[in-house]
Structure formats: structure tokens, C-alpha cells
Design a protein around this nucleic acid. Structure first.
Length: 368
DNA sequence: AACTCTTTCAACCGCTCCGGG
DNA sequence: GCCCGGAGCGGTTGAAAGAGT
């Protein structure tokens, strides 16, 4: 049985012969494809139009890039897939010369397996949930927090409290660290979709970075919608850590509200919505320096403030490099071509919001 | 060399979307 | 608003190639 589009025709199926390829190439290069349904007849092929179209698009088109995927292309696929999911045609648009079919095959035969081997769920880009169910285990709580699927208010609330428990446990138990020795994912594994979700609603909070306005007197009532009940204050959090390192959360504050984040996940979206990140981002600031010493706080705060006030990419990087010692690199050509406005506030870790708390990029994430 | 198992990827299938009548 | 046909998309299949025994 042929395709429904050409069921009346006697069509050949299966692999294309060089002779058929030649006929199709000759026809399209001289006449264009026009209506695909008419191509087989005009080209003298016993194929259906659909098959001709597929053969041309996936194999015969002159602008196709052949050969194996580069690391850069692989990174792009992973990054875009993190946001778009299995929308292969959209992903392929970010890879000149590659087809949706090619990207899909590469994903299924290589990237998918690679991510699984790394303990990452390829469909969610989250770490695969540990089977351990010991709720007293801080590592588990964080892993659990990172592995929820699409946000649900109740689930998020539980996540929040899991983190709260971790924070509070460190003050009651001096023998255990507030955070595990290594956080369960690095920047490259953060589900960006989830982060985008987290900034749009009071119900949805990124588990690794959330708003706390308990000590922030500048927050508006609207912003207070972001309050987490019993969220730890900036000071109390910092006081629990003797040193702020890559393995512990640090606090970076926007002009309106402090953000708690894991340094190893720090990244920026610049004004062109290009994702920048640091591969080996290290902060080693004594906690007591963060408390009550404005100049040190400023060092931490500056990158965000600069982003908000100036939106100058170079300035951002200069500030980041000079104040934190971090070496930021443009991670890839992450082309957020769906973002129409650049007027919104850019925050670390790919977290993004604007003054209305409902940005185009947030809208995109919701629309996906 | 022969066989089996696994992987790759071109091609197919069925579905949705969209525009025209 | 409905129907129809074409285009496009994502999931799946299966032949061919490669790897292992």
C-alpha cells in the first residue's frame, strides 16, 4: 500500500537508486520542485511526491552538510532540546546543513545514550531519580528537588520544603554540611525550561535557586508573592557556611530580591539572549565577608546589577572576571530567536524575569 | 568463514496544520 | 463552517553495515 497521497499510483518504495537520484536532482535543479505531488510524474519517477520530497530534503539537497556531528553541534542539540523537547525540525534550524531526520537519528543513536550513561534523563534533562527513599538524606532531597517534571504547585511546595529542611538541618547539626559535597548537577544539566518556569509564577520555584524576600525590605507586595514560607534569610544562610565555594550555595542579589544559587550553575543570558556560562566557576569568599560588608556584597552583586542597569555584554564579562575570577565563555550559539524584546532583566543561571514577571521568554516556555 | 547480535540511518507511516474552494 | 489536498512533522521501522563470537 502506498501513501494515501498517491495510493492510485503504482509507486516504488524503499531505497533510492542512483538513477532515481539523478532524475530527481535534474528535475528540481532545472524546474524547482513546485508542487511535490507533481514531481514524480514530471521527473519520470515511480515514486510518490512525499517520497521525492523526503529524498530531496534529507539527502539530495545541495546545501546539506554531510559527515559526523561536531561537539559544538552536539552541544547545540542538547541545549535546544532542553527547551524545545523533540521538536527536531526546530532544533535542526539551529544547525545549518543538518536535517530534522539527521538530528533525530543522532539524538536517538548517540546523545540519548550518552545522557543516560551520565545519569541524565534525556527527555527532561534532569538527573535520573535515585531509588533511595531515605528522606533524611540531604543528597536525596536535592536530587528529588531537581527531578520533578513539569511544575505542579503541590510538588513545588514539597520541593521547597525539602530545601528548607536541608538549610535548617545544618544549623541544628554541626556535624553535617548544609549541602552535599557535590551538587547533583552542573550548569550544563540544568533543565532550562524548568528555570524559565520558575521565574514566572509564585507557584513555581526553581529548586536550586529561589526567591527569598524575608530580609529584603525593598520588595513590593507583588514581589512578596514569591515569598517562601519560612525561607531562610540571606544572613542566616551565609552564617551557616564558613566558606562559600563551588559546592555550597551563594547568594546573589538583584536590586529587588536576593537569589540563592549554586555557583557551579552560574550562567548568564546576555542582552542578545546568548547563554554564557563558566566551566570552572569558583567563588571563594569567606562568609563573614558577606555579612555586613557592603563592598564585598557589592562584588557579588555587581554582575547582576550591571546586567540590569546597563545590559552591556562586555561590561558583564569584565565585571564577572574582575570581581569573581571566573572565566566566562560563550557557551554556544544559543540563538533565542523567539525572544522579541530585550528590555527585561537578565539574571544568573539562565533565570530570567522582567519587571512584570512575565517575559517573552517565559511566555515561550509556557507556550511550548 | 559463518553466524548472531547490535547499531545506524534512510525511508515510511500517520498525524496535524493550513490554505483554498 | 466544512471538506479536501498538500506540506510538514515526529515516531517508528527495517535493511544494511558493523561488531562480536
Amino acid at each position: 500500500m502506498g501513501h494515501h497521497c498517491c495510493s492510485k499510483q503504482k509507486v516504488k518504495r524503499g531505497l533510492w537508486s542512483p538513477d532515481e537520484d539523478e532524475k530527481l536532482i535534474k528535475h528540481i535543479t532545472t524546474n524547482g520542485h513546485g508542487s511535490w505531488s507533481s514531481v514524480p510524474k514530471l521527473a519520470g519517477l515511480q515514486r510518490c511526491g512525499k517520497s521525492c520530497r523526503l529524498r530531496w530534503i534529507n539527502y539530495l539537497r545541495p546545501d546539506l552538510k554531510r559527515g559526523s556531528f561536531s561537539e559544538q553541534e552536539e552541544r547545540t542539540i542538547i541545549d535546544v532540546h532542553r527547551i524545545l523537547g523533540n521538536r527536531w525540525a526546530q532544533i535542526a534550524k539551529h544547525l545549518p546543513g543538518r536535517t530534522d531526520n539527521e538530528v533525530k537519528n543522532f539524538w536517538n543513536s548517540f546523545i540519548k545514550k550518552k545522557l543516560i550513561a551520565q545519569g541524565i534523563d534525556p527527555s527532561t534533562h534532569n538527573h535520573i531519580l535515585s531509588t533511595t527513599t531515605n528522606n533524611n538524606n540531604n543528597d536525596f532531597n536535592i536530587i528529588h528537588a531537581c527531578n520533578k517534571s513539569l511544575p505542579q504547585a503541590q510538588q513545588q511546595q514539597q520541593t521547597t520544603f525539602s530545601l528548607m529542611n536541608i538549610f535548617s538541618s545544618s544549623s541544628s547539626s554541626s556535624s553535617s554540611s548544609a549541602f552535599p559535597s557535590s551538587l547533583p548537577y552542573n550548569y550544563n544539566h540544568i533543565p532550562l525550561r524548568e528555570i524559565l518556569f520558575s521565574s514566572t509564577s509564585d507557584q513555581y520555584q526553581n529548586p536550586n535557586m529561589f526567591w527569598s524576600s524575608t530580609t529584603d525590605t525593598t520588595t513590593t507586595p507583588e514581589q512578596n508573592n514569591y515569598n517562601i514560607p519560612h525561607a531562610p534569610s540571606m544572613e542566616s544562610l551565609v552564617s551557616q557556611a564558613s566558606t562559600v565555594t563551588t559546592t555550597k550555595p551563594i547568594i546573589i542579589s538583584s536590586s529587588s530580591s536576593p537569589i540563592i544559587l549554586n555557583p557551579s550553575t552560574c550562567g548568564l543570558l546576555d542582552e542578545d539572549f546568548i547563554m554564557w556560562n563558566s566551566g570552572s566557576y569558583e567563588l571563594n569568599i569567606e562568609a563573614d565577608q558577606l555579612i555586613g560588608k557592603e563592598e564585598i556584597q557589592t562584588q557579588v552583586l555587581d554582575p547582576v546589577v550591571v546586567v540590569e542597569m546597563n545590559n552591556k555584554t562586555n561590561h558583564i564579562h569584565e565585571m564577572m572576571n574582575s570581581t569573581t575570577g571566573a572565566s566566562f565563555e560563550r557557551s554556544n550559539n544559543f540563538d533565542f530567536d523567539f525572544v522579541e524584546s530585550t528590555t527585561s532583566t537578565v539574571l544568573p543561571c539562565g533565570m530570567y524575569c522582567n519587571n512584570n514577571y512575565h517575559s517573552p521568554i517565559d511566555q515561550f516556555a509556557w507556550d511550548c
